[in-house]
């Protein structure tokens, strides 16, 4: 109860600030706001965009109308190209694809062309096996791969070069395995990957923790490790990679960015509203229901974070054998 009050209080204060800012005579924003989800309705990006819309609007953080625009295609590229030509009333949801698309040679765009505004949430990645699998921890699994990489079938989806894939590349690298030797079966989506594991068609899968959590709790499969900093609530029996002696934390984050050339005033406005939004009860509830985790960073922190991530991904893409 106390915690709840605190959050509500913080929200009120922050919301109050937001309103006073608008009254200070700054005329931004002055028309409808548009949030671009660079994907079809239903996926993580779309859900993020619609949740931001809902949380900003229902808490009266932004009084202008907010619309979600779906612009799917090219792993985000279509939507982000669209954003490039807009003003600060348009924002777009993003993720590490805004970095890796360029590294993988599928896009000319880089995150530097846009204005970073915030990182909002993250999911964690995981490695899961069948309950009767001979491997009971990450080390055993990695040693088996090292011995005969081709003999172990790995389920991944929906595309190579995504975080599910690259996090395994990093993990394998830590054990001195050449990621180019791994035997991947690439499925259409996260759900198909889980089905393949349940049906015994692959030996292990690398996927978001949320995809396998329920199955793990039901005893239908076993999560060997997660890429988070610490153990998850409800999954106390699953150790992190770090605990198993691998020095890596791998977030699968989602954030939001604005078009190029935003003024400092506009950046400040969004910093304020998005920070306030991240504190709202509604946002916290959405985050929890989706098995996401709050991962808020403001515009400045995001900017630094993206630089750091770019360097890391550059190495991983090379290791994966997908560098250009």
């Amino acid at each position: 109860m106390k915690k709840w009050l605190l959050i509500a209080g913080a929200t009120l204060v922050l919301a109050g600030c937001g309103n006073s800012n608008a009254e200070d005579g700054s005329d931004f924003p002055n028309k409808n706001i548009e949030i671009v989800a660079p994907a079809s309705p239903g996926g993580g990006w779309d859900l993020t965009a619609r949740s931001v819309q809902k949380a900003l609007q229902d808490n009266d953080l932004v009084t202008e109308n907010i619309n979600v625009q779906n612009k799917p295609g090219g792993g985000g590229e279509v939507g982000w190209k669209y954003l490039e030509k807009k003003d600060a009333h348009t924002l777009a949801v993003n993720s590490s694809l805004v970095i890796t698309n360029n590294l993988l040679g599928t896009s000319e765009l880089t995150h530097e062309q846009f204005t970073p505004l915030a990182i909002l949430s993250t999911e964690w990645l995981s490695i899961a096996v069948a309950p009767d699998s001979p491997y009971s921890n990450i080390e055993e699994l990695m040693n088996a791969i090292k011995e005969d990489p081709k003999s172990i079938k790995i389920g991944v989806g929906p595309a190579l070069g995504n975080n599910d894939h690259l996090s395994l590349v990093q993990l394998a690298g830590e054990y001195g395995i050449d990621a180019k030797d791994l035997n991947f079966l690439v499925y259409e989506g996260g759900g198909d990957v889980v089905t393949a594991l349940l049906g015994g068609h692959v030996d292990f899968v690398t996927t978001s923790m949320s995809e396998v959590k329920e199955q793990h709790l039901a005893g239908k499969l076993k999560i060997l490790g997660i890429s988070a900093e610490e153990r998850e609530e409800d999954l106390e029996d699953v150790p992190t990679y770090q605990e198993q002696g691998v020095d890596m934390v791998f977030p699968h984050w989602r954030g939001i960015m604005g078009p190029p050339g935003m003024t400092e005033e506009e950046i400040a406005y969004w910093d304020e509203q998005l920070a306030a939004m991240a504190e709202t009860e509604l946002w916290q509830e959405i985050v929890e229901n989706n098995d996401w985790e709050s991962y808020y960073m403001n515009s400045e922190e995001t900017s630094a974070f993206l630089k750091e991530q770019t360097a890391m991904y550059k190495g991983l893409v090379e290791d994966a054998g997908m560098g250009q």
Binding site: G43, E214, Q215, A218
Partner: peptide
């Protein structure tokens, strides 16, 4: 697939 996303947001987790 879209239904799954919506249900998760509503707090129903389809699964075993």
């Amino acid at each position: 697939a879209v239904m799954l996303g919506a249900l998760i947001m509503l707090g129903i987790r389809p699964g075993p």
